[in-house]
Design a protein around this nucleic acid. Structure first.
Lengths: 137, 137
DNA sequence: GTGATTGCAAATCTTTTGCACTAAA
DNA sequence: TTTAGTGCAAAAGATTTGCAATCAC
């Protein structure tokens, strides 16, 4: 069982992202950030919220996930066409993707080294390098 | 202007993938493989086929792209949620993804080196390691 | 012939949008 | 108050499905 953390922690995160601490954002942030590192879809988070008797619409869940991502609180991961995952771990790291089950698992940043990355094309800037290790079985 | 290649080449590819050389598959394969390396979506390929007066339904384009992928003739690339790209270059290489325009560009395999990839989790096999360099601007 | 393939339209799934309503500052 | 945020239902976009018609072998 996870020890419940004070709201001030969550409030700080929302403040950092420049977002008003509404009832919905507070509740979703608590689900997202007070339960360790997670990879979650909008649909899953919505279901979880309903399961905790938190009344929130799916549209708001989508809005919130994107606002959190824009504010640096989440990282969006694309591995599967037609479904977006959001990762509560925003530090430098990569992923295993289980193609059969659709599950994601973190690979610590220092477990993968990418060398000789070519320069960004003229006039562009590298925003991120994603490494996805696709596994089956 | 691209020199038109003999059909036998295409026929061999379909044979390799265990697919009957139907009119639609032949025409789509010609568009895909006789024009150099390309990154294309189902929608784009369908439009291109229609532009060449090749009558084929969008559903068949989807079927064909997946059959070609299963047969090792194409490689599916997921970088953008809600849209799949198919790459005619199935050799070992990685990609630049221009987040603004949605364009993909190959990075030759030997321009990126991934070291220290962790072992595949117990009971799984690594099918592929994808490196996506996301750029903006 | 017979089983594989195709086309079409409808269905599905995820995500976004428009807009009236509600809540935070 | 005033502006941001929310919910709902509808729309959008990509992909899949069901099934009768058609084609390759």
């Amino acid at each position: 069982m996870t020890m419940s953390r004070p709201y001030s922690h969550i409030l700080d995160r929302l403040r950092t992202a420049g977002l008003r601490p509404t009832r919905q954002r507070l509740a979703l942030a608590k689900l997202l950030f007070d339960n360790g590192d997670r990879h979650i879809t909008a649909e899953q988070l919505h279901g979880e919220a309903l399961g905790h008797s938190i009344r929130v619409s799916l549209a708001t869940v989508y809005n919130t996930l994107h606002q959190f991502t824009d504010g640096g609180l989440l990282r969006e991961i694309v591995v599967d066409s037609g479904r977006s995952y959001f990762d509560t771990n925003t530090s430098d790291h990569h992923h295993f993707f289980y193609e059969k089950s659709g599950a994601l698992r973190d690979i610590p940043g220092d477990m993968v080294t990418v060398t000789k990355v070519p320069d960004a094309p003229e006039g562009t800037v590298i925003r991120r390098v994603d490494v996805i290790v696709r596994v089956i079985g």
